[in-house]
Write a protein that binds this DNA or RNA. Structure first.
Lengths: 126, 126, 126, 126
DNA sequence: GTGGTCTAGACCACA
DNA sequence: GTGGTCTAGACCACA
């Protein structure tokens, strides 16, 4: 469900944070959905429960998740409607900036980059 | 010359490291080229000289840069030969993985993503 | 500087949170003031640094504190002017509610309670 | 009859514990009095019966309450004799400590605090 | 020196 | 079963 990469330099809790935000944004996690329990995620990804707890707590502070004593956390109601395409695109922009910067510094051309992206996309389909 | 973003979650020295590697890979920084002094970069980006020094030192250990007493560091000779496209593309792949993951979690379609990438690329031309 | 009571049933990080909020509210910690370092506080109160770090981080999220890489955290600028008496009183109200509830359940009269409060106040002067 | 506040940071069972203790201390719940059933309290406050059960059980261990199969719990006989004022005041002291600490950190003066307490007291009369 | 991230693991509160 | 709090301690990034 979530993809965590410990090598990337980005803290694990932040990777989780971003992914939950996106899946709520897209409607893949609609309001009311229960999130996987902290323990389950910790076991599954072999990371410490507190790392996940930290991400979940921050999302609660943000108002995106709701806590229910003794029950799983859920996506909040006001984590409303799936935003317009434009707003969702905004969330990928920082990454696109990094990609474009990297490609240009490597003197990769635009068609070469576009092709590489296409390949990655298709790989993800499998 | 370099673009550093303290908000991204990626450590500053690592951002610098990646960028130098890429510009050497692409031939934009050919062997013998002098790098900006630690002090200049520190002033320019308002960060601590030690952060830059750390990145430069790691690149020296890697054999990509050479240190010359009292003179600026330079790109090493054996850093030479611009690698094949395939090898340069490898360096952008981790970023492309992140982009594809993010886009899919946001339910952005491939054409929408391709278009956004194209826009970013053109913006960078200016 | 801070008074932490592990017996009270209130989590330590929350006690700290409340106390910093109040001292910023009152102007005892004016904008720009550096807070005691996490390590110092941890040693002083013999508690774990992460507990303090958690309180500080929440206050940063709240906008009350500012983080400075490699330097102590400070009271934020927008943690503006000392609020009116009314707003400061609001912050003690939940505690007064508890006191009044407790006293009435103990059948302590108002004058008895007022006297006890007065005594406590004077003790604190010493 | 009881006032429970899930936001206060103090565990629910502890709030209940304190309140029963006080009302027994004051004689508001004299020996022999039947307590509200666990089920009723749970419904009334919308909390889990086990939480109440835990508080009642602790009070039974303490000797303050007595369990009677198939009948409501009652206040124990030896719980008797309403204690002197001094002993009842002791039970509010921890709260008064918190109030005085909070007020002083907020730079609220003693008369201001006394007045606020008076107001709260009167509000409770209604 | 500063704060940040993460682990392993204990124990608590609540359903 | 759920999440929350706290500890002891390692190691990292930055000044």
């Amino acid at each position: 469900m979530f993809i965590l990469n410990p090598q990337s330099g980005v803290p694990l809790y932040r990777q989780l944070l971003d992914q939950v935000r996106r899946m709520v944004s897209s409607g893949q996690l609609p309001p009311g959905t229960a999130l996987p329990s902290i323990r389950d995620l910790a076991l599954l990804h072999a990371i410490n429960p507190m790392t996940i707890s930290k991400a979940y707590s921050l999302l609660e502070t943000e108002g995106l998740l709701e806590r229910h004593r003794g029950k799983p956390m859920t996506v909040a109601n006001q984590a409303a409607a799936r935003p317009q395409l434009a707003r969702r695109l905004q969330q990928v922009e920082p990454l696109l900036d990094q990609v474009v910067l990297a490609a240009r510094q490597l003197e990769i051309t635009e068609p070469e980059l576009a092709k590489a992206l296409h390949t990655k996309w298709e790989e993800a389909d499998e």
